[in-house]
């Protein structure tokens, strides 16, 4: 594995560590005790029926949502809180923003900034958030665009790109912050079938390079081929987890079996 060196002393420390994570909206329990560990360089795929809480869990990992109970750590740091004197203190907006810099996120609907070109989309955060030199960022952004196969389209606006191209730019944009963890929320489910492959290729390449990834996906083929772990989430709990090929071939739970028979 060529995972980036962790900032922490313990190299075996998981990148994501969720212990009994709960989240509810009013009366509705959305996450109901999620336990999950993702090791450095690991690709963890998350599957589950609609409404099972997959997106909610990903959003909790970079604190776009607050968790209501349990522990959630990224790179050994509590997400959104600081522990002092045995109590949890909420972090300020600025501190939460600083935590998010190390976590890249790719959305189902791309969410590129429509008023910026592909290149400007990628350069925005490194220039404005990390305050890196423009020339350095531009060079890295062009390298990333080349890597996702879009070097020639650097001056195109999102509206001028196909869905697959937009999603590849979105991946490059997240990578430009040099994150230690990448979150993908159904990155291919808003795409026409013939465009899915080009995005999965980029993600496969990223996995091979040693990036730690949590991928919510309905692409079981991708999970089986690229994933190191597959978890099946249903009604806010992880019903089953294991090696993707193992889970797909011999699901232990009835609910997993029922779900897989529908998507395979």
């Amino acid at each position: 594995m060529t995972a980036k060196p962790m900032m922490t002393a313990n190299p075996a420390m998981p990148v994501v560590s969720a212990q009994d994570v709960h989240k509810w909206y009013g009366q509705a329990k959305v996450l109901n005790g999620v336990d999950l560990e993702v090791a450095p360089g690991e690709v963890c795929c998350v599957i589950g029926p609609s409404g099972s809480g997959k997106s909610t869990f990903l959003r909790c990992v970079n604190h776009l949502e607050k968790i209501d109970a349990g522990r959630l750590q990224v790179n050994g740091h509590l997400v959104g809180y600081r522990e002092r004197g045995g109590r949890l203190h909420e972090l300020r907006e600025k501190e939460v923003a600083a935590q998010r810099r190390d976590i890249g996120m790719v959305f189902q609907r791309f969410n590129l900034f429509p008023h910026m070109t592909a290149l400007e989309n990628i350069m925005e955060a490194p220039c404005r958030v990390k305050r890196e030199a423009k020339a350095v960022v531009r060079e890295r952004a062009m390298r990333l665009l080349d890597r996702v196969g879009l070097g020639a389209r650097c001056d195109a606006y999102p509206a001028q790109l196909s869905g697959g191209q937009q999603q590849r730019v979105a991946i490059a944009r997240a990578l430009a912050m040099e994150p230690t963890l990448m979150l993908f929320d159904e990155p291919t489910s808003a795409l026409d079938p013939e465009l899915v492959g080009e995005v999965l290729d980029v993600m496969r390449d990223l996995a091979t390079s040693g990036m730690t990834m949590v991928v919510v996906t309905h692409e079981i083929g991708f999970a089986r081929e690229v994933g190191d772990a597959l978890v099946f989430l249903d009604e806010g709990t992880i019903v089953e987890s294991g090696h993707p090929r193992e889970v797909c071939a011999r699901p232990r739970h009835e609910r997993t079996r029922a779900f897989l028979s529908k998507v395979l």
Partner: peptide, 25 residues
Amino acid sequence: HGQSEAAQALGMSPLLTMRRVVLPQ
């Protein structure tokens, strides 16, 4: 809302998000 979420996920502060992403649009 996805626009400001994407900006936040990149580590942009609420003020920067407003100034660079939301207001220009």
